[in-house]
Amino acid sequence: MVGWMGTWTQVEFLYGMVLCPVLSSVFVALLCRFEHAYGGWEQLLAFPISKNAVYLSKMIWAWSLIGLTNTVLFGYFFVIGKLMGVSGIFPFISVLKLFFGGWFATLPLIAIQLWLSTRLKNFALPIAINFAFVMPNVFISSSKYGKYYPWSQPAYAMTPENQLGVIQSLQDFYLVVIIIFVIFCIIGLFNFARIEFR
């Protein structure tokens, strides 16, 4: 029978490769939707709160929602695995590390999506753009350049280390994640500070 880690790789392929990147764009777009409607940004920014604080709070909320989603998936994976009779002892620490890794690896995606969602008033457009970048994920993630592609990074982080043939070092991978996140966070903050909302 397939053990817990074998079962997890099947779940991770769909969730890390497709659902997690798509959900990140949906959460961010929802967090910006009401501000784009009926002059919401003007009303929000009329309060004595800096633009940077508003922008970063949206990012923290989006990241928290992804974390909540990962937690629910973690619970469902354990319960359904038990019900389906997955063999072996549940590797709690190993699976938990993969969940936290996947959560951390969504930061660049959230930074990119927040930048797009604050610029584009159309709710569906940032989601459509994100989906277009998710589509080639299967091909890009299997190449040596996949670790630089933000839409592949959650899948990499959720894959057991012994199956990561194209990544030489997880430290290098997480360094790439941090660098991409910082770059797009700075771009987003710089852009948001200069937008005049009407």
Rank of each mutant, 00 (worst) to 15 (best):
W63M: 05
N52G: 11
N130F: 03
I140W: 01
V22T: 14
I129V: 14
M59W: 14
M17Y: 05
L109C: 05
F90I: 09
K82Y: 03
G146Q: 10
F131T: 14
L23G: 06
M17S: 11
A111V: 09
L31G: 15
L45E: 06
L109N: 10
I129E: 05
S50G: 09
L98N: 10
E42G: 02
F131I: 12
V72D: 02
S117M: 05
P21N: 04
F47H: 14
P21T: 00
L65Q: 03
I66S: 13
L68S: 06
L23Y: 06
Q153G: 05
I49Y: 05
G102T: 02
M158N: 04
V79A: 12
V134K: 03
L109S: 03
L73G: 10
V138F: 14
F90W: 04
F131C: 08
I49K: 08
G101F: 08
Y156P: 03
T118H: 11
N130V: 01
Y76H: 07
K51V: 09
P108L: 00
Y145F: 15
I127A: 01
F139P: 06
V22P: 04
K51Y: 09
L83A: 06
N70S: 09
L44T: 15
S141E: 14
Y55P: 11
A111D: 07
L109A: 03
A155M: 03
F133G: 07
L107R: 08
Y76P: 02
F104Q: 02
P150Y: 05
F27A: 12
S94P: 04
L23Q: 07
P126R: 02
K144P: 07
A62P: 03
V18A: 10
H36S: 08
